[in-house]
Design a protein around this nucleic acid. Structure first.
Ligand SMILES: [Zn+2]
Ligand SMILES: [Zn+2]
Ligand SMILES: [Zn+2]
Ligand SMILES: [Zn+2]
Lengths: 147, 147
DNA sequence: TTGTTAAACGAAAATGATTATCATTTTAAA
DNA sequence: TTTAAAATGATAATCATTTTCGTTTAACAA
C-alpha cells in the first residue's frame, strides 16, 4: 500500500519539520491513522498500539491525535455522544456515510458540494471556512441481516 | 407570530395525545423552542425559563428537550465540544451555517441536497435515514468587526 | 371539590469521554 | 556522553449530560 506509506512519510516529515520528536508510540499512531480507511476511534487506535507497546497510555494517543489535528494531518469526526472517529488518509473536510447499525463510516464520492458552498457564500455573505456533512443510514450488509 | 403559536400548539397537542403532562415548566420550554430562530442552547433555555419560574431545575430542561427530541418535535444539533443547540421551529434535518466567531447559527436556503441524497443512495446501496450538514465560516458582521 | 396515583419536578450524585497535571523517562542535538 | 527540553504514563480534573430519588403536582374520577 504505497499510498499509506507516503501518507505516513508525509506525517513524519511534518513532525520533524516542526521539531516534534519521533517516538515509537507516535510512529505507531501515525501508521494506524495513515493506513486505515475505517475512521478508527481513539479506543481502537489505543488497543492496536498496545499490541506492540503494551505500556502506552490512552493519554498519549489523545495527545498524538490532537497534535495531528492541529497540524491538519488528521480529520476529526466529533460525535456528541462521544467516541470521535478519525480519518488520517483524507485529512480535509469530506462527506461521510455512517451506518447507524454497525457504525461503519464510509467515504462516498460526491462532487457537487463545492458548488453548493459557493452558492451559500454568495447568498449569505459568509466567508466559508469548512464544512461537515454526514449522511446516516443502513448499509447493504445490515439491511440484509434484518431479513 | 402566528407560525410560532401554531408550532407551540402542535407541540402541546402531541404531548397531550401521548398522555404526557402539561406542566408550567414544559410550556415555557416549548414556547422558547417554538418561538426562537436562534437555535438556543440548553443553558440559554434554562436562563429564560428561570425568569418566569426561578425554581426550575436544569435537569427539567434537559428532560423536556430530550422528550421533544424523541417525539421529533425538536432538532438537536450536537457538538462534541459540548453546548448542543436546538431548533424547535424546523425539527427536521436541514443545513446550518455557523459563525465560528460569534457562534450564531443560521438556516440558509439550500435546495440541492435531496438530489445529492438520492445519488448517494443509488451509488452505495445505503438506505439514507437522515443527514447533518454544517457549514462553518465567518458572518458578515464579524468580518466587519475584524477591520 | 377532593382524593388518588403515576408522572414530573428539583437537587444532587454519577457518568464518561476528553483534558490537565506532574513526576519520570526519553529524544535529539551538542 | 551529557544535557535540556519534550514526551510519556498514571492519575486527577473537567464539564455537559444523565441518573437517582425523595417530594410535588397534574390529571382524572368520585
Ligand atoms: Zn451496517
Ligand atoms: Zn473520511
Ligand atoms: Zn459572527
Ligand atoms: Zn435550523
Amino acid at each position: 500500500m504505497p499510498q499509506n506509506e507516503s501518507r505516513l512519510a508525509h506525517m513524519l516529515d511534518k513532525l520533524k519539520a516542526q521539531h516534534f520528536r519521533i517516538t515509537p508510540q507516535r510512529i505507531e499512531v501515525l501508521r494506524i491513522l495513515a493506513g486505515s480507511d475505517g475512521h478508527p476511534s481513539v479506543e481502537t487506535i489505543y488497543e492496536e498500539v498496545r499490541r506492540d507497546f503494551p505500556t502506552t497510555s490512552l493519554a498519549t494517543v489523545y495527545k498524538t491525535v490532537t497534535l495531528l489535528k492541529e497540524l491538519n494531518e488528521v480529520l476529526e469526526l466529533g460525535f456528541p455522544e462521544g467516541g470521535n472517529r478519525y480519518d488520517g488518509a483524507r485529512p480535509y473536510p469530506h462527506p461521510h456515510l455512517i451506518c447507524t447499525t454497525c457504525h461503519r463510516i464510509i467515504d462516498p464520492d460526491l462532487e457537487s458540494l463545492e458548488g453548493v458552498t459557493r452558492e451559500l457564500a454568495s447568498e449569505t455573505g459568509f466567508q466559508i471556512i469548512s464544512h461537515r456533512l454526514d449522511f446516516f443510514g443502513i448499509c447493504p450488509e445490515c439491511q440484509e441481516k434484518k431479513n
